[in-house]
Amino acid sequence: MESRSGTPAPAVTTAVAPPARPSPVRPGWRGAWHGVRPTERLCHVTGAVLVLSGLAHLVVFAVDGGPWDGPVSWRKPVTFGLSFGLTLIAITWVTSYLRVGTRLRSALLVVFAADCVVEVGGITLQAWRRVPSHLNMETGFDTAVSMTLAVGGGVLVVLLTVFAVASFQNRPTGPLGMPLALRSGFAILLVALASGAAMIARGVVLTRTGHQEAAYHSTAPLKPLHGVSLHAVLVLPALAWLLSHTPWSYRTRRRVIQAAVGCYAAAVLGAGVWAALTW
């Protein structure tokens, strides 16, 4: 196209805007669940519900009052709800690092979750009935609840022992320090299972020989040992995971994990000595 003077007219160009970059999508809570197996989701949700149950009964205790210690108190649904909920979430997470078949792990986790619900449910039910949950043989119903909790405790011992053995049979996966943290956590967890079984066994013997009140108080010396050793399988692997997100060298992280394992073992040993001296 030429202008009237005969010189070509300048070409008219239309500016084309560059394609807009897609805005980054921030994964919400739905994205956090992506890639998580249905069994793991079930266990995480169940654990969260148990934790909320424990917190809810802490509010009940604040409103209703009453003793914190003793066989009949709101302490039991609080501590058991929190403890079982955290343990279920922890076991679901840490067993993902074990070299266990997918189907076997899923089956064990489902049974473990169901057992946790039964344990917390029975303890919570008896707390609302204002009667002891463990070692209570006063009525047929109380005996049934007490025996169900005892059998459930045996199931927990078997399941967690299977996972503990698996952690030592094959080296766990995960970041630096995770294998040591997992194996140490499961080894200390076996101490918690042994102390729990000892409390139940001693209490049952005293109950069946007519020493009901003594049975309730016989478990006190072992409670610190049981409580401290129970959560090593959560604390130590969590520390290893946190250290994997730091810029520290492999050598430093390994030393921190080793020191943490040593400190935790010392705490368990101290609780064990105290239990032996006071039992």
Rank of each mutant, 00 (worst) to 15 (best):
H217L: 05
A194F: 00
T219I: 10
V191L: 03
L239V: 04
R255D: 07
R253C: 02
G210D: 13
G262E: 07
H217E: 12
R255S: 11
S244M: 14
S184R: 08
V191G: 00
H217Q: 11
V205W: 09
A240H: 13
S195W: 01
R254K: 10
A215E: 10
S229W: 01
E213F: 05
L242H: 06
R251M: 09
L206Y: 09
R253D: 09
G196K: 00
H217F: 02
Q258R: 13
A197Y: 00
V204K: 01
H245L: 15
R202E: 02
V204G: 04
Y264A: 11
A232T: 08
H231V: 02
L243F: 03
Q258K: 12
A181T: 02
A265H: 15
R202W: 01
A194I: 00
H245N: 05
S195V: 01
W248H: 12
P247Q: 11
L182E: 12
R253M: 05
L225A: 01
A260C: 08
A266N: 07
L242S: 15
S244C: 08
L189S: 04
A215K: 03
S244H: 09
T209S: 05
A181W: 04
L236T: 02
V261E: 14
M178G: 15
P179C: 14
V191T: 04
M199I: 05
V228Q: 09
V256C: 11
L225Q: 06
P247D: 12
V205N: 02
T219R: 14
L230S: 09
S184D: 10
A240I: 12
A232G: 14
